[in-house]
């Protein structure tokens, strides 16, 4: 049997809002490590990795590892049936082809049963060691930049140098360049922009995906953007001391 109880149920709603437009169907893996997910978008350009650790839940019981295949749009529909302040319990019996969502508020409770799906998925090993530039900045600022740039062009060039991080785009009406410099705010660390770099790096990515990633903004005040020497982009939002949601995006390459 698998059962988890999340007092701050709105967190799960925010997680679904962050990933449901990027990924259609995904396996939620339940193990002693936590409630996790790894899935690619249908074009195999982006990968999302989610982890919610057991200690973040009021109650977490996992008798044996199970994988629950869910359509994320349907899961989101069910989560929207619960109130924002509800406590959410998710339960699945061993061998069952359904999962139960229970919403509790001081006024009552509601149960929803959703059919599970068989989804073929592969697990991917993620090597964090090739990182060559890391930028941590306010998530709202990153969201604003992606939105502004997508009104001008389709692709963003992200360049990290000693000067700062530059986001540039080009479109029919002209070009746009936005530079964020390192700025450490001791009193409000969440408003800081911190750049760590072992070598300058520059790569270009589709803005459509970047804007999709920023749907995770309500989960965290800050976002961490990493570029590897292979020009793979990772965008990470931490989830209130219980885990993270990470988006990986493949670069566009000059043909």
């Amino acid at each position: 049997m698998f059962e988890l109880r999340l007092v701050q149920g709105s967190l799960l709603k925010k997680v679904l809002e962050a990933i449901k437009d990027l990924v259609n169907d995904a396996n939620f893996d339940c193990s002693a490590t936590g409630f996790s997910l790894q899935a690619m978008d249908p074009s195999h350009v982006a990968l999302v990795a989610l982890l919610l650790r057991p200690d973040g839940f009021e109650h977490y019981r996992c008798d044996r590892n199970i994988s629950m295949g869910m359509n994320l749009n349907n899961m989101s529909k069910i989560l929207k049936c619960g109130g924002n302040d509800d406590i959410i319990t998710i339960r699945a019996d061993d061998g069952s082809d359904t999962v139960t969502f229970m919403f509790e508020s001081p006024n009552g409770s509601a149960n929803f049963e959703m059919n599970l799906m068989d989804i073929d998925s592969e697990h991917h090993g993620i090597d964090e060691s090739k990182c060559c530039a890391v930028v941590r900045m306010p998530s709202s600022e990153f969201q604003r930049i992606c939105k502004v740039l997508s009104s001008i062009g389709d692709t963003v060039v992200i360049s990290v140098t000693n000067e700062g991080v530059q986001f540039s785009t080009r479109g029919d009406i002209g070009t746009a360049n936005i530079v964020c410099r390192q700025n450490i705010n001791v009193d409000k660390p969440e408003e800081s922009t911190v750049i760590e770099m072992s070598q300058p790096v520059s790569s270009q990515f589709p803005l459509r995906y970047m804007n999709s990633f920023t749907k995770a903004t309500p989960l965290s005040n800050t976002v961490t953007i990493s570029l590897t020497s292979e020009l793979l982009l990772a965008v990470e939002y931490t989830i209130a001391e219980m885990g993270y949601i990470r988006f990986y995006l493949a670069p566009k390459i000059e043909d």
């Binding site: 350009v45 090993g125 292979e230 990986y248 995006l249 493949a250 566009k252 000059e254 043909d255």
Partner: peptide, 14 residues
């Protein structure tokens, strides 16, 4: 022309 690379090229299957 800019080609979009596939994410699978960056990860190993486990």
């Amino acid at each position: 022309v800019n080609q979009q690379s596939q994410i699978t090229a960056f990860f190993s299957k486990t």
